[in-house]
Structure formats: C-alpha cells, structure tokens
Amino acid sequence: MKILVCVKQVPDSAETLSINDAPPRIIYGDASVFRMNRYDEFALEEALLTRERFPDCTVDAVSVGPQRVRSTIRKALEMGADQGIHILVESGEYVSPLARASLIAEYARSRSYDLVLAGIMAEDDMEFQVGQVLAELMGLPCATSVMLQEMDRMRGTVYVEREIEGGDRECLTIALPAVLTIQSGMNTPRYPSLSNVLRARRQDLVTIDPPQRWPGRETQLITALSYPDAGSPGNFLEGSTVDKARGLIRILHEHSLL
C-alpha cells in the first residue's frame, strides 16, 4: 500500500514579511524562518500511524516550491517518511492552487497511491483547495476536515469522520484510492527520531522539473496586495505596564465586572 502526503513549507511568522507592489508579491525578509504547515504535520503523522498498522505500507512526502522547501521535505523524512519528492518551482510569483495541484497530480497519477493526504489549509495562503482540486484532477473521491480515518483494505474503503461547524462530525465511507484533507488535533505529530534524522541526512530527494507550460498557472492572478485597514475601533491602553494594568482594572470596574 502506498500513501502520498502533500507538505507545504510556510514562513513561521508573518512578521518578517513585506509587500512588493509591482508586481504584487510577498517579500520574505532575511530573518524569515520556514517550517512545515501545521496541518500537514497532522497529515504526515496520520500516514505514519497507518504504516504502523499495515507493515507493507510506504509513505512518500511531496512538496512544490523553490529550493528552500527541501528542508521541509527533509523534515518529513526525519519524522519517518520513506521518500521525499521535490517538484521544483523557482518562481517567486503566486502559484495558483490549480497549478500546484496539477503538478502534484502529474507526478502522482502513474504511481498508484492508495491514499493521498493533505492539510485542510495552508497557514500562509489559507486557500482550502489543493487536496480537493488534486482529487478532481485524478478522478478520486475526497473528504476534507478529516478527524478520524479507518481503512478497510478488504473492502477497499476508508471510513471517515469530518468535522463541521460546532465540532459535530459527518460520517462517511469512501472508496479507495481517495484524497483526505486533515484537520488539526487528529493525532499528536511525533518528533523526529535520531535514527530517522541520520537516515534523512544521507538520503537523496527525488527532484522533478515541471514541464515548460503548466496547466492552470494563469487562471487566477493576484492583482494587488495590501495591509488591512490600520484603524482599529478599539482603544490602545498607553503608558507603562503598571499604567496599563490600572487602566484595565478601571475598565473592568466601569463595567461592574470586578
């Protein structure tokens, strides 16, 4: 059995970012630190847990992006993935979810994965899309916001609970192969083990150069980037820490809460 996990690299904090106006693009300052998208850590953990249940299972991790994303693919190996795949896209421009999903589909299509896992959303662009689009491109069923999955290999299905508003869960079974997008809290992502860290250091990543023309690249464009209106309706307390503490106590008194 083969599992593919989509992992995206994201900046650890938005504080080191700035905006370039023309062309509109995000500039990552020198102090930027990059890490794996948190939802993808849960997806990878779920794949590793599944491999523990089915010893014939292998787990591949794939990421689309520039050279720097190799550190995140390597992190996936350190956590325990068997193989890392880097789809190299050097562009500093916005790459639409359709384009990213197309590149992953291109790679995955001929490799008969039984299960493809992605995060519910990427913390940087928050699009909630790549898993669903990938599924459609590959002609596979898909469930999002998954909090529980149990594979039934005899039947060739997976039982899934997907979280909806208020924490309720929709239960369904879908046919394998399938794509699931994982919600946070589904498991507890592991820390890399020393043996995996050593293995990851020696292991080569598979590097894929995308075709000259990729599908879906220009279907949606970012025409501008901006900061949200600075104006907060709220009142910022001023002064020293003690002044602010007194200010807060006064406000609580005024509302007869203290």
Binding site: P11, L17, D125, T223
Partner: peptide, 20 residues
C-alpha cells in the same frame, strides 16, 4: 473587479482576479 481575501491569518490582503 477583484475579490479580496486574507493571507497569513489576516495580516495581508490579496486582491484576486479570475482570468476566465
């Protein structure tokens, strides 16, 4: 003619236009 959506937990806004 553009749609506005948030990036990075609301720190940045993107104006997005479909080309179709």
């Amino acid at each position: 003619g553009s749609f506005i959506r948030s990036l990075f937990g609301g720190k940045i806004r993107a104006h997005v236009k479909p080309s179709t």
